[in-house]
Amino acid sequence: MAADSQATTPDAGRSGPKHGLRIFLVWIVLAIVADLLIGLVLAPHIPPGKMSSSAEDGQQAITVMALMSAPVMVFVLVYFTYALTVWRQRDGDEDDGPPIHGHAGIQTGWIVGTSVIVLALAAFGTVELIDSHGSGGGEGPVPIWKPAATVSLTSWRPGEAIQVQVIGQQWKFTYRYPQFGGFETTQLVIPEGQWVQFNVTSIDVIHSFWAYQLSVKADANPNVNNIAFTKPTQLGQFTVRCAELCGLWHGAMFDYGRVVTVPQFRAWTAATRVFMADVTPMLPAYATTYDPTVIPAFRSGPVMKKLGLVSAGGGYYPPQDPVQP
């Protein structure tokens, strides 16, 4: 704005060259170069990649943001550099700078331009969230944006969303598959090309389920079912980390998941179901959340009842023993 003001302000010492035009020309060239570099070179490598629908949407959103913000950043840098170079104080120059006057056109253009950018990004972000069914983020127990697919908790057919319950606990995620007999496992395996519904919860403190390459991230809160959706689009391995400081071994709370073909997924579920057959009946009935502080009466044996061990809450000792730090 100052440059244009100066360009239109008669000033003996500084009004010669058309500063505004110069700055515009330099800016437009550099902005185009920056956007071309971002769009053609950087964009394919922007994390989290393209391993899932949500990852692709995330990468696309970040690319759009970068393409729109790069010209703004380039303008600031060009203007800053131009001002330092051209308008710096010369030796012996003790005069004040020229007065700056308002310019209704530039002010209006600035307000309109920035408003359009912000509103466009808001609209773009909202559409992206809706279009990608939450874009891999936790949507709470009643998701607004979910894929239109029939869901059964007792069986699964291709085309339906796979139900995977993510159970956070210090310091490991375990995964439960209610559509395949309700087994629980430490392995996260999902099929390519199928919608997956992650039902994320915790049985102790707050964790956060972060499947990095899938661009899925949902807080794991006790007594809350936090639902996130994604559709894996590439075979391979992805990293799962806890993204919420959850105790001494928070840093060790990570593992690796796998995206496999549908036949491989079916074979894996069948084998795991058999392998876990001896512990699956010991698990609580599948539910969206679990409360370990209460063990159902029918699940407690006589010795446990006599000993008063009818809770898995961890508070068995008298309150004064041990003393809280």
Binding site: Q170, D204, V205, G247, L248, W249, P292, A312, G313, G314, G315, Y316, Y317, P318, P319, D321, P322, V323, Q324, P325
Partner: peptide, 15 residues
């Protein structure tokens, strides 16, 4: 959860 008396039984000796 054998850290009796601590949050969720996972404090004290568990950490």
């Amino acid at each position: 959860p054998c850290g009796g008396g601590y949050v969720t039984g996972f404090g004290g000796p568990m950490q």
